[in-house]
Amino acid sequence: MTGDAGERLVDGYALVVFDLDGVIYLIDRPIPGAVEAVGQLHAEGRRVAFATNNASRRSSEVADLLTGIGVPARPEEVLTSAAAAAELLRDRLPPGAAVLVVGAEALRAEVRAAGLTPVSRADESPVAVVQGYGPQVGWVDLAEASVAVRGGATWIATNTDRTLPSARGPLPGNGALVAALRTALGRDPDVVVGKPEPALFATAARRAGEGRALVVGDRLDTDIEGARRAGLDSLLVFTGVSDVAELLAAPPEHRPTYVAMDLAGLFDPAAVVRVPGPADGWSVTSRDGALELSGAGRPLDAVAALCAAAWTGDATRVRAGSAAAGQVLTAFGLSA
């Protein structure tokens, strides 16, 4: 349950902050129910924001994409790691300073809009390197960045997402490319801007004024950790990367406030659960190094029960102690 019976989750918050990939859309196709959910928030006059680690599109481009799939959005409602990185560089560097950009054209455009000079070669004397996701990033780009950083340039990463969601499953994200450069340089970036760093969510939360903000995401290691580090409640939806198995094994910094299958959990009290929380109809016992789920009831209540047991012990392996439990574990991709 979310708390009081019949209370909608969304009614407790002044602002809902959405991750995009895996929550609103998958690459450029809307996730079922997302258009309707955001539309209902708009119809009720509720404030929304969209925060994304994807640095391959500008805020205006993201707003156009959202509007194109049926989610009206204004550029000022969109917070991207590319724009945040450019703003950080603008505050640290003199106007016109050369910045070597590793990433998509959108990141170059944000750097240019911040009054800096985007360059692509180490021999152009960049004082900083900014690295973001771009589908065309290759060895030559990483080599130039390596030379520049070894020469003293500050290294800024827009984000360190290991993967990004796609219709074919998770694909290498900017974090995989950052890892390649980290291996070559033998050190970490000087600054990481995007989630799980709290900057994007903290900026969004300020728009809620005196009210509370709720972060909705699909990844424990970026969206949920970022929300926790910003001091915000979070809702994990299973429409993107993280699944129940990952949730049960989550360390404290990756644990969400609520869990739902999709965005219907914002409006339907029966479609969301607080974790850990009351587990109507279910019981979990620890036996032989495994968690045994028994009983019957709502699948999400079973998740709450399993989280309560897994987060207070060492076992995350799960098995079924009843027929209903077996069905639930199979549905969630857990061994029954």
Rank of each mutant, 00 (worst) to 15 (best):
M1V: 15
M1C: 14
T2L: 04
G3Q: 12
E7S: 13
V10I: 13
A14E: 15
V16N: 07
V16M: 13
L26Y: 05
V35A: 11
R46A: 03
T52M: 08
R58D: 11
S60R: 07
V62T: 08
D64A: 14
L65T: 05
T67C: 03
G70R: 03
G70Q: 07
V71W: 02
R74L: 09
T80Y: 09
A83F: 06
A83V: 10
E87S: 12
L88A: 12
L89S: 11
R92V: 06
P94T: 09
E110R: 07
A113P: 14
R121K: 09
Y133T: 02
G138C: 01
W139G: 05
V140A: 11
S146M: 14
S146K: 04
V149M: 08
A153C: 05
I156P: 00
T160V: 14
T163P: 03
L164H: 02
P165C: 07
L171M: 15
G175S: 12
L181S: 08
L185C: 11
D188R: 13
P189S: 09
E197Y: 01
A199V: 11
F201I: 13
G209I: 06
R219Y: 08
A227L: 01
R229H: 05
L236H: 04
T239Q: 06
V241E: 08
D243R: 12
L248D: 03
L248Q: 02
T257N: 06
V259M: 03
M261T: 10
F267P: 05
V275P: 00
V275D: 00
L293D: 08
G295S: 15
L300H: 07
A304Y: 02
A308S: 11
T312K: 01
T316K: 00
R317T: 14
V318Q: 01
A323N: 06
G326M: 03
Q327G: 09
L329I: 13
A336F: 13
